[in-house]
Nucleic acid binder design. Structure first.
Lengths: 206, 206
DNA sequence: ATAGTTTTCCATCATTTGATGGAAACATTT
DNA sequence: AAATGTTTCCATCAAATGATGGAAAACTAT
């Protein structure tokens, strides 16, 4: 039961954010009384923190998983495969992206501990991309590049509903289009032999 | 007074989101009684919608402004200047980015009208970048590219507090680093003469 | 100054929301 | 079966929250 509550809480906190979610919404969705929820998890803020730890752990494991798969391949291949795998993974668990973005952008009216997971992710990905030797000591510009890359994926995952209602494409096209767009944006930046100089605009071939 | 309330509401809705903001928080910040707020703006959801319209209008005017400045320049210059100007502008008004991202990612428990502003912005920027001829009829891949570009900026603006607490740099370095990172990511993608193929990783010069 | 209008605040409601005590139901052990 | 421990639900609270009526205050026009 404790686990079932956590699962539902992940989803609902991810959709509505901390203040947009009520403990009653979660309990109702699980199909239990609200006091059962409090019995298992204590106050709302504690459940929320548990949810955050839970999604970070999932993400951490997935990143290790992906790193194993792409290890040793040439950089472009590594990035292509990583983008495909992470995109698929997150689109199946959008609450992960949702909750991460919520923590980035939304203040809550309750104290929350300083985040140590994101810097760890940044370090690992940067090393994997050959941007840094020591994952514990990223140069500032590499930190920002990693944030930009990670956020680009989260945005498309979390914004799916909003964007689909706004854009002229169906879900399948959206999912494949997101992968293409991410590769279009990320790969040239990290693989160009030297800083671009020519003002030539050209669309990539479909 | 009506205007002062709107200003404060922009900031607080931007920080805490719709459900994280109470009408009392806004009234207290303005220094007025809560019922004065209701007298001018009606219910909370109406004030929120007014705030959203307000920030979209500001953004629209700024985009027109920037477009005038960069008109006629070569593509790389256009993008560099646009990134600089938009980044400076949004860092001074972070509630714009905050509110836009909130609408993307967070469900609210009240109905909200379909967004027509973002598609308009996408169209204008895409035409300005030479990705499309008709701003009313963007191809799907151009739509997604524009979203990625706009979101990249909003992320760094909205995430400032969270990221600064997490990263090893001060605010000045963050602001300049964000611009560099955006250029690093965006410009190669939209200027490379043909799809990249070499697996060579290279950092851009400081 | 007076009458009328607009704006502001005080007091107050009804709901919602986070949270808890205690009884009942269920499970486990002896 | 009885005793013990665990889990669930019902009833309920107190505080927070969205919202309003009406009196006072401030402003405007005559």
């Amino acid at each position: 039961m404790k686990g079932r509550i956590l699962e539902v809480a992940r989803r609902i906190f991810g959709e509505y954010g901390f203040h947009g979610t009520t403990t009653r919404m979660i309990a109702q969705e699980v199909g239990i009384d609200i006091s059962t929820l409090y019995y298992h998890w204590g106050e709302k803020g504690d459940l929320y923190e548990a949810v955050v730890l839970d999604i970070y752990e999932d993400l951490r494991l997935k990143l290790i998983d992906v790193e194993k798969i792409i290890h040793g391949l040439p950089l472009v291949k590594r990035m292509e495969i990583a983008i495909d795998l992470m995109t698929d993974y997150l689109f199946e668990r959008p609450e992960i992206s949702n909750l991460i973005l919520f923590r980035y952008f939304a203040k809550t009216r309750h104290a929350s501990p300083l985040d140590l997971h994101v810097p760890e992710f940044m370090g690992n990905i940067a090393v994997s991309m050959g941007l840094a030797a020591d994952k514990k000591d990223l140069p500032p510009d590499a930190q920002l590049k990693m944030l930009a890359v990670m956020n680009a994926i989260h945005n498309f995952v979390s914004g799916e509903n909003f964007f689909l209602a706004m854009l002229t494409m169906d879900r399948d096209k959206y999912l494949s289009g997101v992968k293409e767009t991410l590769k279009f944006l990320i790969i040239p930046a990290f693989t160009r032999p030297r800083p671009a100089s020519g003002p030539v605009a050209r669309k990539e071939p479909a």
